[in-house]
């Protein structure tokens, strides 16, 4: 069998599991949706500040929430890996005559698909709340794609932790600890013009900012290919590091 078809078999199985135990799907959606609803209310009047680029804070916020969804979903990836170790499913995969790396590629790809569904929920919810998407359906497809590959890159990190510790609690806690700094030290919630200088600088080094900026342009301003490409490049760079690390951790865990 080819690595591709093996990856597909394992991806399908992981997704089937997600659907059977939807609690995890909701867990990583709950906070983003809560933030979407609360922040869009709490910070409504920000839109009146001089220098605020959009008519409503909601328009500004939606891209950040999509990115947050990708990130928090990605940080759950390792939980699936730990549970496969505990249930003996990892051994079951390992005794099959497949390319062993398909266990990892199947894991990451299923995360990507899961994020597509979750991002779509966020987009629809925001639409119902009044958000409008400048680039239309095609723009949404690109936005979801960007969020999905970004999430896959971060899923690599979650799996490094999962494979090194083989402990669900640690994997979950590290995800939670990382989520908020990455989220708030970004261009997500405040226009850069209104950020303190140091935070602005930090945000420039945060990969999440690149995703948010690209998404924000697509939601509000139209097609900005240079931002889209930047986001892809940053995601690929990040993914190269995390997925190499995850592959190493995987090989070590099964040897």
């Amino acid at each position: 069998m080819s690595l591709f078809s093996e990856t597909m078999i394992i991806t399908r199985r992981n997704l089937l599991k997600s659907v059977r135990v939807p609690i995890l799907l909701f867990m990583s959606l709950f906070q983003p949706l809560l933030f979407l609803i609360l922040f869009s209310q709490i910070f409504t009047s920000l839109a009146n500040l001089p220098g605020f680029p959009y008519d409503t804070y909601l328009q500004f916020l939606v891209p950040a929430i999509i990115a947050m969804t990708a990130l928090s979903s990605a940080f759950q990836s390792g939980l699936g890996t730990v549970s496969d170790v505990e249930d003996g499913m990892l051994d079951k995969f390992l005794i099959a005559p497949v390319h062993r790396i398909s266990i990892m590629t199947g894991r990451i790809l299923s995360d990507g698909v899961r994020i597509v569904a979750q991002a779509a929920v966020v987009i629809v919810t925001a639409f119902a709340m009044g958000a409008r998407y400048e680039t239309g359906l095609a723009g949404l497809v690109v936005m979801i794609f960007l969020a999905s590959i970004f999430g896959m890159a971060w899923a690599g990190l979650s799996n490094i932790v999962a494979l090194r510790t083989q402990n669900a609690e640690v994997t979950m806690v590290i995800g939670i600890i990382l989520l908020f700094p990455i989220l708030f030290l970004s261009t997500g919630f405040m226009p850069t013009a209104l950020l303190p200088d140091w935070l602005d600088t930090v945000a420039r080094f945060n990969p999440l900012s690149y995703l948010i900026d690209a998404e924000r342009a697509l939601v509000n301003d139209g097609w900005d290919w240079s931002l889209v490409v930047q986001s892809i490049v940053v995601t690929l760079g990040l993914g190269a590091v995390t997925l190499t690390g995850a592959t190493r951790a995987f090989r070590k865990a099964i040897s």
Partner: peptide, 9 residues
């Protein structure tokens, strides 16, 4: 020795 089955499937 410890069964390896996917409980959700």
């Amino acid at each position: 020795q410890a069964t390896g089955i996917d409980r959700d499937l």
